[in-house]
């Protein structure tokens, strides 16, 4: 029983990060039908922003060597600000890597490459400015909370509990926004049929920006939280999550918000179930699931049936 609870806790806390990550992908996909390969870089930026905002100093490498913000914000304040800054960067990425293609009516496939270019630029910009060393959000950021909690024999790190809680709140807010507000409904309309949405007077350009902004915000928050949990391993920090997020995205169903959450939790749990002896195969779990899912049910768990022509 303890074991089961332990697996559940481990799986959920990892799955929550995957879910947050995939949500960002899915928001952009729902309005544009393409994948934003710069998403991982924005996640990384979120972690760096959080680190700088709490007053973390840059080490001895990079152009900003020795730099430190004059103020050190508490973590709970730094995190949302980092989210907003990441959202701003995501809007910038939309502007340089997506909008020009849309204006020219170019093949949406090209956005895979332009967004990859934007991601490469962001990652290397971080390295240029702050070097490649790891940066850490101090373990004391959570105040006097103990480093780990136990629930009936199962142990979990406090950071992971926080991650799970924040993700749950964010997903709840996002769902409420999509279902309960005018702009949320507009987003839905654009994702279902951009042409009709346009005829109904919905500004699709604006909706695309909202989707990018939200996706950047979520990525930034996820980055900051993961940075607190495992420290920022350098500019390439987000890449692993970026690839796995793809698996989650397709498993849940491209463009489906509840699907992204479900996909994240399933893959998190599945990875937690891999026995230690076979942990080398853990990274293949997400993709194995994804591959099978594509063959059995290409639209994913909660996606809409696919149109005949793409």
């Amino acid at each position: 029983m303890d074991d089961l609870l332990q697996i559940l806790l481990n799986g959920l806390s990892v799955g929550a990060v995957y879910a947050l990550f995939a949500l960002g992908y899915t928001l952009v996909f729902s309005v544009l039908g393409v994948i934003n390969f710069a998403h991982g870089a924005i996640f990384t930026l979120g972690a760096y922003f959080t680190y700088l905002l709490i007053g973390g100093g840059v080490g001895s490498n990079g152009l900003l060597a020795g730099f430190q913000l004059p103020v050190g914000l508490p973590f709970w304040l730094a995190l949302p600000i980092a989210g907003l800054l990441s959202a701003a960067v995501a809007l910038g990425v939309e502007r340089v890597a997506f909008r020009p293609l849309r204006k020219r009516n170019a093949d949406p496939l090209l956005a895979l490459i332009t967004s990859l270019g934007a991601g490469v630029i962001l990652v290397n910009l971080i390295q240029l400015l702050m070097g490649a060393e790891s940066h850490s959000i101090p373990t004391g950021s959570l105040g006097s909370l103990p480093p780990a909690l136990s629930f009936g024999g199962a142990h979990i790190r406090t950071v992971q509990v926080l991650l799970l809680a924040v993700s749950t709140v964010l997903v709840g807010l996002l769902t409420a926004w999509i279902d309960g507000t005018r702009s949320g409904k507009g987003l839905q309309a654009v994702s279902e049929d951009p042409v009709t949405a346009q005829l109904l007077g919905i500004n699709s350009g604006q909706m695309i920006q909202i989707a990018f902004g939200l996706s950047g915000f979520l990525a930034g928050i996820a980055g900051g939280l993961v940075g607190l949990s495992v420290s920022i391993a350098g500019p390439y920090f987000g890449i692993g999550y970026g690839i796995k997020g793809l698996g989650v995205l397709v498993l849940g169903g491209l463009g489906s918000v509840p699907g992204a959450v479900l996909g994240g939790l399933i893959i998190g749990l599945a990875e937690a179930l891999v026995p230690s002896d076979l942990s080398g195969y853990k990274d293949a779990v997400a993709f194995g699931f994804l591959f099978l899912m594509l063959l059995v049910r290409p639209q994913g768990l909660l996606g809409k049936p696919l149109p005949n022509k793409v």
Binding site: I35, F287, G288, F291, L295, V310
Partner: peptide, 28 residues
């Protein structure tokens, strides 16, 4: 024969998945 039933981005992602699975298996 199996993956070409998929289209567009789905085909792309399934082939990415294949490459990753192959990599992990061969590492092990």
């Amino acid at each position: 024969k199996v993956v070409l039933r998929l289209r567009g981005i789905y085909l792309a992602i399934s082939t990415i998945a294949l490459v990753e699975i192959l990599r992990v298996v061969s590492l092990n």
